[in-house]
Design a protein around this nucleic acid. Structure first.
Lengths: 124, 124
DNA sequence: ATGTTGTTATATAAAATGTATAACAGATAT
DNA sequence: ATATCTGTTATACATTTTATATAACAACAT
């Protein structure tokens, strides 16, 4: 479990946690059913407060990446609401592509970037 | 100048302004050299504070989308630092794609989405 | 001169973020 | 049973971010 937090980042700690865990799932470091560290363990490990980790886990639960269980703690559990996910992806992608167009980045360059990232994640 | 602000959004007003203006540039509603409304005009128009608009304009300047001029106000002016822009795009795209993979969205579906958005923006 | 720019300063209020303790109920292992 | 581990909830506090409210300034246009 390699979670590196940048305390000087302008990004909130709990969001950094969310993003890195989602990256870990995408890169198949974590799989369905795998447990995450308990909020107290992870907080101690990183050197932050328990509630910051708890907030990250709560967001991940809300967004359908983990389930929280009093017995086993936080467990990777993917709830795939594909329609909703694509809607959200489209909204965010629109903003990224708008910025890209303003910076003279072409459609082809974006396609290539997408392929590179998929290769990096899945070797696909 | 259609700028619609959602006051109930969790997204900060000045960021909504930034994003909509960048969308406007990408969709070629605004072109290089076009003036934006003055901070006071736009603030009055929307019904928000002058400084909120000023912050949006300052961020847009910082990110190379406009130049600010005491004479003419804010003017669309694209500073294209392509290398830096691609780095930023890659970082953000990595997060989007990680989320997409977790939600069983395929590489092909993302390519299609990119094409749809380009069509929407540029008819390209 | 008057009015418009962006800019800067100060002050205030609300919300978001992160920390610090503490306690609770459910589950597990001994 | 007891101790220990879960997530959960509550309270309190400090800091930062966000947004507003006034006010004034220098540069420029008419």
């Amino acid at each position: 479990m390699y979670l590196s937090i940048d305390f000087n980042s302008d990004e909130a700690i709990y969001l950094q946690l969310c993003n890195q865990i989602i990256l870990g799932i995408a890169m198949e470091q974590y799989r369905e059913g795998d447990p995450l560290p308990s909020v107290r363990q992870l907080a101690d490990n990183i050197g932050i407060n328990m509630h910051t980790v708890n907030k990250a886990y709560t967001v991940l639960k809300q967004e359908g990446f983990v389930k929280l269980d009093r017995r086993r703690g936080a467990v990777i559990s993917l709830d795939v609401d594909k329609i909703r996910s694509i809607e959200e992806l489209r909204r965010n992608m629109q903003l990224l592509i708008a910025r890209a167009i303003c910076k003279n980045i072409s459609r082809e360059e974006i396609h290539q970037l997408v392929d590179e990232i998929f290769l990096e994640y899945l070797g696909e």
